[in-house]
Design a binder for these strands. Sequence first.
DNA 1: ATATTTCATGTAAATGTTATCATTCAAAAC
DNA 2: GTTTTGAATGATAACATTTACATGAAATAT
Lengths: 330, 330
Amino acid sequence: MKVKIVDVAKEANVSVATVSRVVNNIPLVNEETKERVLEAIKKTGYKPNAIARSLKIQRTNTLGIMIPDISNPLYTEMARGVEDICGIYNYNIILSNTDFSPDKEKESLDVLIEKQCDGIIYIGKDLTDEFQEILKNAPSEIVLGNVMDERGDLSSVLIDNESAAYDLAKRAIEKGHKNFALFTDRDGGFTSDKILKGVKKALNEADLSLDEELIIPGNINVKGGYAMMNKLLDSGKDVDIAMTMNDQVALGAIRAAEERGVKVPDDLAVTGFNDYWLSEWVNPEITTVKLPMYDIGAIAARMLIKMCEADEKESKTITCPYEIVERQSM
Amino acid sequence: MKVKIVDVAKEANVSVATVSRVVNNIPLVNEETKERVLEAIKKTGYKPNAIARSLKIQRTNTLGIMIPDISNPLYTEMARGVEDICGIYNYNIILSNTDFSPDKEKESLDVLIEKQCDGIIYIGKDLTDEFQEILKNAPSEIVLGNVMDERGDLSSVLIDNESAAYDLAKRAIEKGHKNFALFTDRDGGFTSDKILKGVKKALNEADLSLDEELIIPGNINVKGGYAMMNKLLDSGKDVDIAMTMNDQVALGAIRAAEERGVKVPDDLAVTGFNDYWLSEWVNPEITTVKLPMYDIGAIAARMLIKMCEADEKESKTITCPYEIVERQSM
DNA sequence: ATATTTCATGTAAATGTTATCATTCAAAAC
DNA sequence: GTTTTGAATGATAACATTTACATGAAATAT
């Protein structure tokens, strides 16, 4: 049988209130009795029941985190950032994979709310109007990670993907590239849109244009990159550079190119997006833009915890800096 | 103010008991009143309070998972396996990073127990006697993931790393390799020990021996691999093959070798361990052994949930199969 | 000496559920 | 017409805490 607060109270010959006081480090308890209670706790092996405690104090010290796929390197860094901050502030994390499925997202959110998470971090690649509405009405505090609430006012911490893509494209233009191909996300989404926009803007400013047929959609992973590059090469079009949405895609693309005898970067430049550790360990090393995914998670968590503790209700959006990192593939 | 069961009861003009019955899908409630209650739930926006429920029924439907580092590809797959199974059986996950720190492990465990997790999955690279004792006495059910309890009887699901290393080394010997180097974990641990043992066994059987000076310890990541290979090459010893404990290490090692003009696999073979998706996308593709990390997580979770639901207390250990996958680096 | 303050402790209500037991009421059985 | 059954519902005691309030004793002030 599990030992509870009344058991240690009996053991120490005090009331449960007193035990509760020493457990929660509330002063106003005599040093000597405190000693006795501590003794009793050790002897009985008492561990407070956080569930009962939460019910009473109406806080769980728990954050819910909705994330598309914890095993996807894109998201795992963010999760770690959240985790580390939670560790510092003594919060726990309930994890929920959503797999980009709206149904799973709704389900997850319900569960997190029912479990009385003090706050919830929503990480995804897009935010539908419908879900925005649902989040807005949630009883828990909400912060969006790497997702923008374009029509609403939910707090969020994100990256200016459009500028990042713009900068990277501009750099490419400066290097003399003129004929661009762009590998986009077949499932669309916020990030993909912004990158497309940024690239187009850079091209426009340089009086270049993007051949719509060279906007090639595919899956955002190595295989997808491999496939998209093959499609590009099959098209027979004249291209200087292929910009991708992600380093893994770039890796797959480079592989496909080299298998067909196309040298990167001499015959064709390739860029990644969202620096991944492996990108400087492959050959050629991938030129990309470094996005501080860990920081996004950490900042979002800190923000959320602040929202939970103070009732500082004003919603903020924080934009994190990125950094173009030029390596060998362009 | 949050709406609770009594609010719904008032709205629907029934007792809380009845509402609870319809929420929990207990029969014996009239179809018409059920309708009315459902209506009231929708109208009030009632969401059951899982905390209160858990307190009453003495179960949380929550699994705790202790994991060294969620952002480490080594562990992230396992986490995903756990997650998926939990999704199916309607459990939630409380995540706790331990960073290989015994102190953090103890802390984590306490928190998970206090939060009344029905079961806990411990993932690590080693199990100290002290912690084994602590786990054995924990009030929650415990399953070890990829960790062996050598002197105890805790349930676990693992891989026969020794055999895997043995098989891989044997394959190397068959290919004519004679002079082995081995890159081990500077921090030691269960996996590292077993691999060393397996390799030695294979060598012994072939009347070969392992030069103790060619057992090179280092960090288990790309940089570590890079450093260990440089150390090996600096030694000037005559070596055919370097076996590593992990694909990332192999990647770093290969890079170091090629930078020094040592061709892999022609001048020197390199093997990885624990197949990682990137290993077939780099050049040369890495020969390794594929360990079903996802499955370990999934099986551990399924086992744990079974232990929580039936009080099937007998402890089991399940060993998962591995597979040598020969690619280009050896 | 009495009144007042301060400190240490105890009592008990409240947190939002579930589940046991009791109750009601109608229909069926006698 | 009375008794029995059984289905539907309600009252309420847990579940393990925290905390506002009450109490009592000792110390201080009057």
